[in-house]
């Protein structure tokens, strides 16, 4: 539903600014996630460093958006669609900030891994990383286009993310089991895998917010879950 512009132009501009900031913040998160995986798989500390540094930009966007939301609520008292725009912007920015943190954490761990990792591991991580990146891109498209359909697609695809994460976990556990010398890097990789999965979860949270933003109702039913996660190395 395309809305008519507000009678008060400055209000319209404020809401537009909020959306723009969120889109740019999302773009930064996409880059951070992509680069963090690239840095890990290519053992590239320069890129990892850049991801860590750039996290401040993402954090600043969150503060900026929070401030704008508080201003809108205090000074404009938004209603209906405008209220949903405002409230969901706050929630989405908080999810995106976590995405940035998790990518940063992947990069911090990358800096602690000094050797090239086995190909099968990097491929596994790249595979799950790629699908989560695609999910993040799609959910940001859904936000830009106010498309609940794309949001629902993303939400439903989280199951695939879970399944790939579990496969990746199995690879990492195999690596851990194959020798004591692998314990340190393997442990980092467990966290890396978990971080990627958590990013996937934040993406589905955002998808739910977009659905609410457009429809004013909540996505019903439980989020699709993939295969059971591995506990203590056993399925």
């Amino acid at each position: 539903m395309t809305e008519k512009p507000h009678t008060v132009k400055s209000y319209e501009e404020q809401l537009q600014q909020l959306t723009n900031n969120l889109v740019v913040m999302g773009g930064n998160c996409e880059t951070a996630l992509g680069n963090s995986i690239k840095a890990l798989c290519n053992n590239d500390n320069t890129i990892a460093e850049a991801v860590i540094d750039n996290d401040t930009v993402i954090d600043n966007f969150e503060s900026q958006i929070e401030q704008e939301v508080v201003d809108l609520i205090a000074l404009r008292q938004p209603m209906a669609i405008d209220l949903r725009e405002t409230v969901t912007a706050l929630k989405i920015s908080s999810d995106l900030e976590r995405v940035g943190d998790l990518a940063k954490n992947i990069s911090k761990r990358t800096k602690l891994i000094n050797n090239n990792l086995p190909d099968n591991l990097t491929q596994s991580i790249e595979r799950v990383g790629a699908i989560v990146q695609k999910q993040l891109k799609l959910v940001l498209d859904a936000y830009t286009n106010r498309s609940p359909e794309i949001a629902v697609d993303v939400w439903e695809k989280d199951e695939e993310v879970d399944n790939l994460t579990n496969l990746c976990m199995e690879e990492v556990i195999k690596y851990l089991k194959s020798g004591k010398e692998n314990v340190e890097y393997g442990s980092h990789l467990l966290f890396v895998t978990k971080n990627i999965e958590r990013i996937g979860d934040h993406v589905t949270n955002i998808a739910e917010q977009i659905y609410f933003l457009v429809n004013g109702s909540y996505l019903e039913g439980d989020r699709p879950k993939g295969s059971q996660p591995i506990v203590n190395g056993e399925k």
Binding site: E3, K4, H6, T7, R84
Partner: peptide, 19 residues
């Protein structure tokens, strides 16, 4: 009405998009 009205006209009015 104020959170999620059914009619577009209602929404336009309460959100200040009228006229």
């Amino acid at each position: 009405i104020f959170k999620n009205p059914n009619q577009q006209q209602t929404q336009d009015y309460i959100t200040g998009r009228f006229g």
